[in-house]
Design a binder for these strands. Sequence first.
DNA 1: TGAACACATGAATATTTTATCATATGTTCA
DNA 2: TGAACATATGATAAAATATTCATGTGTTCA
Lengths: 110, 110
Amino acid sequence: MSQKIYDGKAISHLISNVAEDELCDLAELFKVFGDSTRIKILYDLINGEKNVTEICADLEMNQSAVSHQLKLLKSSKLIGSRRAGKQIIYFLADDHVKTIIAMGKEHIEE
Amino acid sequence: MSQKIYDGKAISHLISNVAEDELCDLAELFKVFGDSTRIKILYDLINGEKNVTEICADLEMNQSAVSHQLKLLKSSKLIGSRRAGKQIIYFLADDHVKTIIAMGKEHIEE
DNA sequence: TGAACACATGAATATTTTATCATATGTTCA
DNA sequence: TGAACATATGATAAAATATTCATGTGTTCA
């Protein structure tokens, strides 16, 4: 909103409104990764696409809970899906997911 | 727990218990980035260390809320602190924070 | 067509998380 | 020492989120 005078130069406020929106989007993105069910799903899909039943089996979780999280992951554009007969096949939307997870693992293992 | 036989090879369950713990740790890490207040603090500190009052001013948030989040960030080892007289100065613990944020930004801007 | 299967979804509940309020702790300096 | 300042913290209230349950929708196949 206002500006600060610092070292003789007018600099915009560190977190201007535009940056603030960007940071909120970032938080939204990380929030998606910040749930163990969702990250397990993402990790599960690294090995290739799977249908809902397979994912439920891998996570040992009930179908409804998994479907709800799949929906959230899809609306976040992290996964995509296609129908194959009775089944819906889910897959990672792009390589960013792998990169971000790898990044996090690296941090943890430091 | 059990193993699956796939393509003639015994492979451990995709999400074995050990991997499961690792994934939960990962979720914990991302959860920290997944809050707008915390990510604003982290972003604020990219420009250099700051005391609590400065951070509060930058975020336009009350001191108690900020302190609570600082505590969480510190317990997650993402920031460190030192005392300087009456003030406590906070700073990013390492470069991973910058990298992870950059990573996320890249994904968003795709 | 209708039964069986695979998945989605709305509502309710349970759980977790965040901000606020009041107050406590630690430091400086007159 | 004690007042003023900077920060931390416990408790509580408020908000957001996840899971469960019941049920709905879409597809296959006999």
